[in-house]
Structures are given as structure tokens and as C-alpha cells.
Design a protein around this nucleic acid. Structure first.
Lengths: 251, 251
DNA sequence: ATTTGACATTAACCTAGGTTAATTTCTATG
DNA sequence: CATAGAAATTAACCTAGGTTAATGTCAAAT
């Protein structure tokens, strides 16, 4: 991890963790959370644009996102990049259970980010002692797959306008629970090039498409702020289904 | 499930299961396997083109593939289809841990298929009593994501020839362990339309691209048989990495 | 206040892949 | 063996999105 990363002195107890509502420990009783806490090895704050791990390298930590934005991406030999997913508060990061296998993608912060760190060695032990956690992880991973499938459809079978509409709605709905007072405008730290590398287009065409969406009064994107101007039309354009994106189980 | 499906009288004991080498119970000791077997509710054989479950419907079974080919896909409102993954012997099917949520995709057999059936209600119980199984499932699910990410790169950032090369190599490498005596020719039940809906192209362009690959002596595809003619060039064309695709942990 | 570099925007042109549609194999079934 | 539906193949034409390249805007750093 980047050397500028600093381990904080301040250690939030897991029972007080603001992301507990969102992420992994959601359905665990209080007692379980306290026991799980001992597997944690620290909390750290990373500045924007920090590489957390690199594709091809072995990496021995697992993280829960506390605050911030992280992107996962793969780089091809020809230099092009495919962004796989944005990791937000409450999400799991770098889950790849076999520690000997090198990471198949890279992870980098887009904004300042706070992570909860688990050493990977403790994982099997955690699983054995707390099957509920294992079940919860499985659930989260299954939802990650569902999202990944949505991305496949988005890139494989939609045109440019539909792809952008989907991406905006997906992120909008994942950011909302973090900031309940949010209206139709959210922070949106992606550049147009990031967007392009997420939805399988070029940045020039993303720019063209953004203009067209803006001119039709669907969304407005500027200065790293995204405003949803016409939610219903955007939903129908994207073929968007909230279910596919939300992190919360229904219960 | 389709009514032509028949539950077989013959019940293979899990300890003798030929896919144990490939799939979920791989690293479990014999004793665990015997205990797990009681959660199984049956084994069934489905003819080709059978719908196993449909996107949007609740579905209450989990399966392990025994033999055959199944495809997972999503259908858009405009009628187009995106194939998400091919499920082969030893793979997990329909893993979506929350039983109340409708399936987000459909599953259909391409060939005659034998499945091992688990009712979903037993799942949490299985997790609690056998954390090793939970860990193994987590591992499999994590690998499914890795493959899904490869697909994203394939569709998002590669041209037609590269996409096909990748798909062929991926499937080739997943079929090999099932038939150790196989040479460079494997059974390949996908139609050109299936291929198109997998890699985000049209069937016409798949046909053109296939001709070009054949004329250059890279692969030959006809009568549902795929022959890898020039493995090294195919690998370099696809940017293919075996790791990304294999189901076996290294140990 | 100015410089610098990252990012956004636009225009002109081009091509990979899509569309339509006709023709030719296959393959399953009576 | 005859036939029909599914799948493959091909050609002619078209367009969504890619490429290149120039210009504009903003924000951090000196």
C-alpha cells in the first residue's frame, strides 16, 4: 500500500461503526460483532488516488470500506483499462479467499478513504468460529455477482445513453443510504474517462452522450456533482431495477 | 422446472460423486461429505433446452452440476439477451442466498444435464453445522466473480476476434479437467447466436469473425465441435490467463 | 497572479460492427 | 425418404461509436 497511508490512532469500536447498518455485520447480533472485532488489525485513512493493491501481486489484507470511493479495475497489455466496480462505504474490498493467488485486478482510491483492515490469515479461523459471518460474506459476494451481471448486460447489450443512465442510477442508489438527507444531487468523483472505462466507451463519446442527456434534461454532471433531473425517464431509459443494486437484504 | 424433468431413482452417494474432484466438496474430508449428503433432496436429469428457473421468479433450490451444460442469461425488455456464464460439471448453480428475492437471471440447459438438488431452506443450517462448506462456497463464489470480471473486460475492451478467442479458451480450459483424455477438440454445444449473446456481438458478425479465425488457422468450429488449432497464438490474441478461469484451488 | 497539468469539450473524419435479407446447410421427425 | 424448422453463411449497405487533434476551462501549486 502507498506509503502516505497512515494508520490512525483513533480506533472506532465495531459496535459503534457507522457502516454497520450498510455492510457485512448487518444481521449479526451485538455479541458476534464484539467477538469479530478482535480479528481486525487496524483502521487506516488513504488520500485520493492511492493504489491499495495491484493486479498480479499477492495481497494479504481484507478491508471493509468505512468512508470514501474506491474503484476496482483491470489493465490490459495494450494499455486500456476496464473498471469493474466502485466500492463504497460498507462494501467489502479485496475479497479473494486464497491468499497465495495474486490479485486479478487493481484497487485505487478516488477520494480520501477510510478502511477497516483484517489480515487474511485470520479469515479461516473467523469462518470456523463464526459461521454467521461466513454466511453474511457469501450473501455480500452473491450480490456483488448480481451487480457484475448487471454491468455485463449494460456493456454487452445497451447503447451509450442507456449505459450512462444505468451507471448514474446505480451509483445514485448506492450513495443514497449513506447520506439520507441527500436530494437529487450527489457527489460524483469519477472523471469522464473513468466513466468511459466503466461502460466500455471512449471518453469522447461519453462527453457527447453526456451533452445529449443534459440537453434532454435527464441528468446534469459537472464539477464532480451529479444531479438526477428526470428520474422516471432515466429509469426507463436504463432499464433500471433498484433490486439489482441495493446492498441491503430485505429483512 | 420443466415437467419433462425426471427425478432419477438412482441416487449416487456423494462420496462416489464423480464431480467431487471438481467442485464444492473438493477439500472436505470424507466425514464431512457424508454429513452434507443428508441435506440433498435429490438428483435429476433434464433434457436439453429445459428452463431451470426464470428471471423474476422466486426459486427455492440450489444445484450442483453433475454432467451437462447450462447457460445463465438475462433478457432485456427490448428482447435482447445477454448470456452471463456457462455452468459446467462441478459448478454451483442458482446460488443466491436470500430465498425471498426473485432470481435476477434465467438458467437453461444446452444439453442433457444431471443436477444434484438441495432445498434452499437447509442452507443456513448447513452453514452453521459445517463452516468448511461455507468457506468452500465462499471460495467458489469469489472465483465466479473473477470470471465475471474477465467477461467484463472481454466485452468492454476487446475487439471481436479477441472476444471469441477468449471465450473459446475459457471454455476449453474448463472442459479439459472433466475429460482428461481430450485432445484439442471438445464438444461445444453453443450456437453462433449463443456466442454472440455471450460476447456482446451480433450473430452475423460472429460468423464473419469465425471465418477469419478459421482462415488464419486459429480455431475450427463446426457441428458443435471446437478445435483449438493454434493454442499459443490464440492465447496471445485473447490476452488469456489460465488462472482467471480455473475452478481448482492451487492446493 | 501566473503557470501547469489534468480534465472537458468540440469538430471532422473513419471503421468495426450492426442491419436486413436472401440462400444454404443441417438435423430432427413423421 | 421427405419435409420443416433451426442454424449457418454471405452479401450489400449503414450507423453508432471510435480516432485524432485542436481548444477551452479549472484548480492546485509556486
Amino acid at each position: 500500500m502507498n506509503t502516505r497511508a497512515k494508520k490512525t490512532n483513533h480506533q472506532t469500536p465495531c459496535t459503534l461503526c457507522p457502516v454497520r447498518q450498510l455492510g457485512i455485520f448487518q444481521r449479526l447480533p451485538e455479541a458476534e460483532v464484539i467477538k469479530v472485532q478482535q480479528y481486525r488489525s487496524g483502521q487506516c485513512v488513504l488520500p485520493a488516488k492511492t493504489l491499495i493493491y495491484r493486479q498480479g501481486e499477492v495481497h494479504n489484507h481484507l478491508y471493509t470500506m468505512f468512508t470514501g470511493w474506491v474503484m476496482l479495475y483491470k489493465t490490459l497489455s495494450n494499455g486500456s483499462r476496464q473498471i469493474l466496480r466502485y466500492v463504497l462505504a460498507g462494501d467489502f474490498l479485496s475479497f479473494q479467499p486464497d491468499a497465495r493467488v495474486p490479485m486479478t485486478h487493481s484497487a485505487q482510491t478516488l477520494t480520501e478513504t477510510t478502511l477497516c483492515v483484517f489480515p487474511r490469515q485470520n479469515l479461516m479461523q473467523l469462518f470456523n468460529e463464526h459461521p454467521e459471518v461466513a454466511a453474511q460474506i457469501t450473501l455480500i459476494t452473491a450480490r456483488d455477482i448480481t451487480l457484475s451481471y448487471e454491468y455485463l448486460v449494460n456493456i454487452g447489450r445497451k447503447n451509450a445513453r442507456e449505459r450512462l443512465a444505468f451507471l448514474f442510477l446505480e451509483i445514485y442508489h448506492r450513495v443514497l443510504p449513506q447520506f439520507p438527507e441527500t436530494g437529487t444531487t450527489i457527489m460524483f468523483p469519477l472523471t469522464q474517462e473513468d466513466i468511459a472505462d466503466t461502460v466500455g466507451l471512449t471518453l469522447v463519446h461519453v462527453n457527447r452522450t453526456l451533452r445529449s442527456l443534459r440537453e434532454e434534461g435527464l441528468v446534469q454532471l459537472s464539477h464532480h456533482k451529479l444531479t438526477i433531473l428526470d428520474y422516471p425517464r432515466l429509469v426507463s431509459l436504463a432499464g433500471f431495477n433498484v433490486q439489482s443494486v441495493l446492498n441491503q437484504p430485505l429483512l
